[in-house]
Design a protein around this nucleic acid. Structure first.
Lengths: 193, 193
DNA sequence: TGGGGTTGTTACCCTGGGGTAACTGTTATG
DNA sequence: CATAACAGTTACCCCAGGGTAACAACCCCA
């Protein structure tokens, strides 16, 4: 089945995010990707320079979707407490919906050579950056960053636990609970500097 | 320089934990390990059946050290609050001291094929298990597990942030702060079931 | 001092898999 | 239709790197 170039490119991206998410970068050969796309290897190389290139494109797209949804959610809330809630809920909604993307970025099978690591780190850092304002201003900025990173890890840990076991969950409710935990925790840290 | 078998084995383990921690599983060849140990490849295969086998041995050792220190710390504390503090402090002490082991298990370059993933997951699960009792008993057990996993993720996220940037930190102080956050957070979750 | 066990080396095999050259259909347009 | 531009395939190259067979040095003990 023949496809025009841009459509094929999209299809390859769609298919390969699934394949890479499930089997990991190194266990997935370009032939695997090609097979999954119902096509042969050279076609892949018409659209992407290398395996790396394809993989990085995937990471980039996934990262954007994550960043967008969290940033948007936090921006649409007024109080710090509400921001926390909206942020976590958005995160868990993204995990629930963009399942494969989550595994690609944070699943235990994620690749992580020099470049991919950098890409993923950038995404985590951006997410942490979006969360940083939640944290009381009168704390040492470096320490703020550490806490933000911790909250991201919190959400990540919970998600990985659930996703890798294939358990479904209610993003709204889970987000509320984790946000409660985070918010109360942050206020406590604030009180004991 | 010749060594008796058990000593050589130890030396290989010592050296390879560093190499794997820095460059990751896939980017490290057995020749790299051999070079780092000042020896040639076949020697490695006298002590380990395969690359996998060596790597799993490393994961296992690292995991044991982590589990031991956390479990011991938690066991030596009375109140829930104190357990939380001791637990997190122990975790961060381990990170600070057993630097390479942390990267091996949780660094972004960790390998993660079928078996390694399982090994690492087991360790995380065990750590979460050690933490679970901290969480109020009147919560749905499944939910308890999720929270425990989240706390592990919290510590992991903070540590990764610090370690991968090569920043040094005061384990005692950091542990105290994160424990404050976690403890206050847990009590909040408890109040809103 | 010489032979058996032990430690180590050299030199190789061999497969997986990333990447490509050269060719074959297929669609659009004058 | 003819032909160019495009989509796709077959068949291959090639090498990194895991793993091993065969050989060499060394050490200990009778």
């Amino acid at each position: 089945m023949r496809l025009p170039a841009p459509a094929r490119r999209e299809q390859i991206l769609d298919v390969s995010v699934q394949v890479f998410a499930r089997r990991g970068f190194h266990s997935t050969s370009m032939n695997d990707v090609a097979d999954a796309a119902g096509v042969t290897k050279p076609v892949l190389y018409q659209h992407f320079d290398s395996k790396q290139d394809l993989y990085l494109a995937l990471l980039d797209e996934a990262g954007n979707r994550l960043r967008n949804s969290v940033t948007k959610a936090v921006a649409g809330a007024a109080s710090g407490k509400e921001q926390t809630e909206m942020g976590f809920k958005a995160y868990f909604h993204w995990v629930a919906e963009d399942h494969d993307a989550f595994l690609l970025l944070f699943g235990s099978r994620a690749s992580r050579d020099e470049e991919s690591t950098a890409a993923i780190r950038r995404i985590t850092a951006e997410t942490a950056h979006a969360i940083a304002p939640l944290i009381a201003v009168d704390i040492d900025p470096e320490h703020q960053r550490v806490l933000a990173q911790g909250l991201v890890g919190l959400a990540e840990g919970v998600s990985r636990h659930l996703v890798e076991r294939g358990e479904s969950f209610d993003a709204e409710q889970l987000g509320q609970q984790i946000a409660d935990l985070a918010w109360a925790g942050l206020r406590a840290v604030h009180r004991n500097p």
